[in-house]
Design a protein around this nucleic acid. Sequence first.
DNA 1: TCCAGCTTTGGAACGCCGCTCCATGATGGA
DNA 2: TCCATCATGGAGCGGCGTTCCAAAGCTGGA
Lengths: 268, 268
Amino acid sequence: MLQSCQNGGMATARTRRSPRRTDALSRERIVEAAVELLDTAGEGGLTFRALTERLATGPGAIYWHVANKDELLDAATDAVVAAALAAECLEPPKPTKRADPTKPTKPAESPDSPQDKIRAIAFGLFDAIEDHPWLPTQLALQLSRSPWGSVTPRIFESVGRQVRALGVPEGHWFTAASALVHYILGAAGQNAANNASARTLAPGVDRAQFLDAASKAWQELDPDDYPFIHAVAAQMREHDDREQFLAGIDVVLTGITALHLPGERGRT
Amino acid sequence: MLQSCQNGGMATARTRRSPRRTDALSRERIVEAAVELLDTAGEGGLTFRALTERLATGPGAIYWHVANKDELLDAATDAVVAAALAAECLEPPKPTKRADPTKPTKPAESPDSPQDKIRAIAFGLFDAIEDHPWLPTQLALQLSRSPWGSVTPRIFESVGRQVRALGVPEGHWFTAASALVHYILGAAGQNAANNASARTLAPGVDRAQFLDAASKAWQELDPDDYPFIHAVAAQMREHDDREQFLAGIDVVLTGITALHLPGERGRT
DNA sequence: TCCAGCTTTGGAACGCCGCTCCATGATGGA
DNA sequence: TCCATCATGGAGCGGCGTTCCAAAGCTGGA
């Protein structure tokens, strides 16, 4: 039934307004669709036109639930980050399939020490970024746009609790948590960029080949202008992402414990 | 003389092409204009239309020198970062007006130690970001887009040389430099975001008032969900940017020396 | 001196985007 | 039953990055 054409004389032969949707639109459903679009079509794939098509609606309906595109991107970012942090907070016991605990952790650490929890949080974000290559860009944009938005407190809170649990005196909480958060987001983001670029530039090429090419590019820089880059190019090719990421976290953690826990000189 | 209308039947009465410019266009002049536009009109102010007006030309002329907008943004970012790093490398002796050396540096450090040079590099980027609020966003975008581009090697090289000078064994160069670079870019970027937001949201309001408001917003978060945020809100209001930034760098530096320089346990 | 061929310029136009506006359809209280 | 309100979807606007191309200078060989 194509509906009764009650207004015959209208100038615009409005193709009869499509019947109203039965399944209600909601901010949640919109954000969900946005995340899927970002995942499948990339950062540039999230378009209000693509969104209207996927949700079988018009722009107006979407704008009724969401103020603008920035807010939509923020909401999508927040949703993914919240899920990542929640997942890591709830399942610390079981050794996940991704975190490879081959590397011997420091000996004097209890299994659920704050250090371990911080590593779990970091890897949670690391994995989320790997699953959603658009995440680091949006995180950076959101940190620049509104540092007090919803995402920043979320991450700071998760990391900060463990900083407190470490025994860091209150006066240094902000410094310690900042150092951790900035390192985690920066390193995870750059790593994801490597993966994403490998995928984008040559779909068939795997990570190793890509890193090989990038390493070679670095080695071809003028050794006079870039002696250090030249030297670390080899390391870059061989490095293991997660191991390297963990090593960086340990650097920051060691710095925190050494500087802010005068009682426990040295490591851990 | 309105031109010899050789093609009489042409539909377009081309209003006589404007005479050719005397001052040659060049990639450098375009990048320079782009930086100025970004500085004065903000991130959204850099438009090919605005650029054509400022350079009194058409899009085609610009596209002759620059492939696309991304390349232009990368070039602008690279130019600013190169200037910042060059400035810091050339003038380490004189205590700059900005870096306030009231805080007593660690005693056992020579005046031009690698640590000091790293701090100088960091503050160079910190200042550049303060002068160009669009920089952190572009840095993040460029790190995500092409980590092996021109900017990343530049920063890595500057920091990496000092890491090497610290005596870090070669196997840990990449880890140590990464930790430093990620912290520096992340913290400087977030700090700039605070300043920029303070300016944007209320032009008359100064930084202190803004941080006051942001701190209050954090304090109003549910203490049950965000106990840590709630607790550090006060610190956020009182903190001094550069001091905090320096403290974070020292955390990472301490971690590097403690973990990777077994000979020199403890600090510096 | 002239002209062919190259580089460089500026402007018109294209397709897509975020976003606004508004007529319409549903809904629930009076 | 009627109406105020919520919610929807489509048409369209202004602006963006980008492309295309005719024209204008330049350069060197005849």
